[in-house]
Amino acid sequence: MTTIAVPTNPAVRRVPLARLTRIELLKLTSTRLPYGLLAASLLLTGLFTVIEAARAGTSGGPAPLASYAGQAAITAGGVWSLILAAVLGATVSSGEFRYRTATLTYLAVPGRGRVLAAKAAAGAVAGALFGVTGYLVTLGITLGFVAGKGDSVAIGAGTLTDWGLGHLVGAALLGAIGVAVGSLVRSQLAAMIGIFAWMVIAESLIGGLFNAARPYLPYTAATALGGVPIGTSSFGPGRGAENVAALPFAAGTALLLAIALGGLLLAARTTVRRDIG
């Protein structure tokens, strides 16, 4: 039997997404900003954890350090790594417009959606690093204070591991959300300020007005993944909240994933398609 080869248009050979992600990570690590943000994350995490640990058991402070609630509340210092993971994600995408390097990026890889996906992946990887290191700092300080006061660790190893995983997942997804925000806003400064304002101010205001909505706010959901209790800490997004439970791990992860994907899809359909002039 004779077969006839049907001529087809040769498919465009695409750079694999893993390589594109590696390129984005190489871009990140070849500048000083991510290192500065990581240093700021660790510094703020350490500072706020120490302050909370010192205030534990005092009037207006977290519960006593010997208690489960007190030790859990002190881990709220780790939220700074989550905030800065999102800020870092925003710089991954908005930096291309700030420094006008988008031209070179799209000349190398014309598929803008794939570039955005790689940036989101890179933002998630870098965000995860922020989350894990922040958690290790807050955990180390907490354990140090507990040991220093001669108390015993009230939280089980399994729970502490879960919170570490929560910091990793929460910060990774906030990193990807940051990439989406940076792509939509394009102005690096506006994106960074916007993320700070949302996380530090807007969620508190919205949560204050609509208590039941608190668990569904993205930053609050991310902190809940990391074990930050809603309503029991004197610092954090859930401060002052009452009678509201954090989302379960899977639901919180799904919520953040949906927000990240939704934001990235919106950016891919709108701002990312704009002319690069």
Binding site: I23, L26, K27, S30, T31, R100, L104, L107, A108
Partner: peptide, 29 residues
């Protein structure tokens, strides 16, 4: 495309990156 077309449209690069790092990123692309 970079194997077929070399383009210079604007002299914009990330100011914090070294020339070698910039080119290594492009080489990877």
């Amino acid at each position: 495309p970079l194997h077929q077309v070399g383009a210079v449209l604007e002299a914009s690069f990330h100011p914090g990156r070294t020339a070698r790092a910039h080119l290594r990123i492009q080489a990877l692309s």
